[in-house]
């Protein structure tokens, strides 16, 4: 409320979320989520699939409306003033949302027109942004001729053709090779400095979360933790042992003995939380001869995630939608 009148460019708060709730029938997709993102912050959203990340992002992008609570983008309420909120945010979706049949320039021009960017500024911005993502020489090529990485770069450029203050990036680097990922982050850091952008990112890549100023962990529609990566690791991270038992008897014994500490058992590898300073020594003394292998892992965000949600971060399987897309990509009827 306090921010409703303050439109200073030095906005202290980029995004405010208060008590956001969304239900799909009886399923609670978001359960009273509240947090603030400071202007210019790099903010990471971490959560397994179905945790409510996408729902949250869609509400913030004004595609969905919440059942309860409020959200503001640079001071503009997404429910009461969605058009204003949309002018202040840029979105890079996980799935490409470019038009394959238009050229790079035409895609950016479309965006500029739809966001009401005046003609002179539009042209200037398009050239600037194409230069930032190093696609200037491709401007008159059709988008369908671009690689996946280039398309992602173009989408980032597009989200910045208008005066976006908050940039949402939903898995911006998924499916890209390490080199392309590094490149995209280089652009993002550069733009963040140039434009005082607030970045809100969801990602599966733990090392990308490490560079965030703050991380929010979401699961089951609830905000489980919110802090800097370092503090999160201190508070929730644990050293873990990854143990491969010699045989079933040993496995059963371990299961019984460390029932409280076992985080998961997968493909014969047991992940056991290190509990106390003498834990590893005692464990080795007792089971050292009856295990095939053992490795000791430093606290990581992955372990934070694991201990908070009990799950790893992994990809989901193919859905009906994916199949339709595959059908279209094979050149199904009346395709693009």
């Amino acid at each position: 409320m306090a921010l409703e009148g303050t439109t200073s460019p030095m906005q202290a708060i980029g995004v405010e979320v208060a008590g956001l709730t969304k239900r799909y029938g009886s399923v609670l997709a978001l359960d009273h989520v509240s947090f603030d993102v400071k202007a210019g912050e790099l903010f990471a959203l971490l959560g397994p699939n179905g945790a409510g990340k996408t729902t949250l992002l869609h509400i913030l992008c004004t595609i969905l409306s919440p059942d309860e609570g409020t959200a503001r983008i640079a001071g503009a309420d997404v429910v009461r003033n969605p058009l204003r909120a949309r002018r202040r945010l840029g979105v890079v979706f996980q799935e490409p949302s470019l038009d394959d049949r238009l050229t790079l320039y035409e895609n950016l021009e479309f965006h500029g027109l739809v966001y009401g960017v005046p003609a002179a500024l539009r042209r200037q911005r398009i050239d600037e942004m194409l230069a930032v993502v190093e696609l200037s020489e491709w401007r008159d090529r059709l988008v369908r001729t671009l690689s996946v990485g280039m398309k992602r770069r173009l989408e980032i450029a597009r989200a910045l053709v208008h005066d976006s203050r908050v940039l949402f990036l939903d898995e911006p680097t998924v499916g890209l090779d390490a080199q392309s990922r590094a490149r995209i982050w280089r652009y993002l850091h550069q733009l963040r400095l140039q434009r005082q952008l607030t970045l809100i990112v969801t990602t599966h890549y733990i090392e990308e979360v490490e560079q965030a100023d703050r991380v929010a962990v979401i699961d089951g529609g609830k905000l489980l933790a919110l802090d800097s990566p370092g503090s999160l690791k201190l508070a929730h991270g644990h050293e873990v042992l990854e143990v491969t038992p010699l045989d079933g008897a040993v496995e059963n014994e371990l299961l019984e003995k460390f029932a409280m500490n076992i985080v998961r058992t997968q493909d014969g590898v047991m992940t056991i939380r290190v509990d106390g300073p003498d834990f590893v020594e005692n464990f080795l003394a007792r089971y050292g001869s009856r295990i095939r292998s053992m490795s000791r892992k430093e606290p990581s965000l992955e372990s934070v995630f694991l201990s908070l949600t009990g799950r790893t971060i992994r990809d989901q399987g193919s859905t009906a939608r994916d199949r339709t897309l595959a059908f279209g990509k094979q050149g199904g009827e009346h395709t693009r």
């Binding site: 799935e95 490409p96 949302s97 009401g116 939608r321 009346h334 693009r336």
Partner: peptide
């Protein structure tokens, strides 16, 4: 066929680009 392109826009995500824009 123009209507078919509505489906493709929906499925391939281009519709979202427009939906998050300030266009009513």
């Amino acid at each position: 066929q123009a209507a078919v392109s509505v489906i493709w826009d929906r499925e391939f995500g281009f519709l979202r680009e427009v939906l998050v824009s300030p266009m009513p």
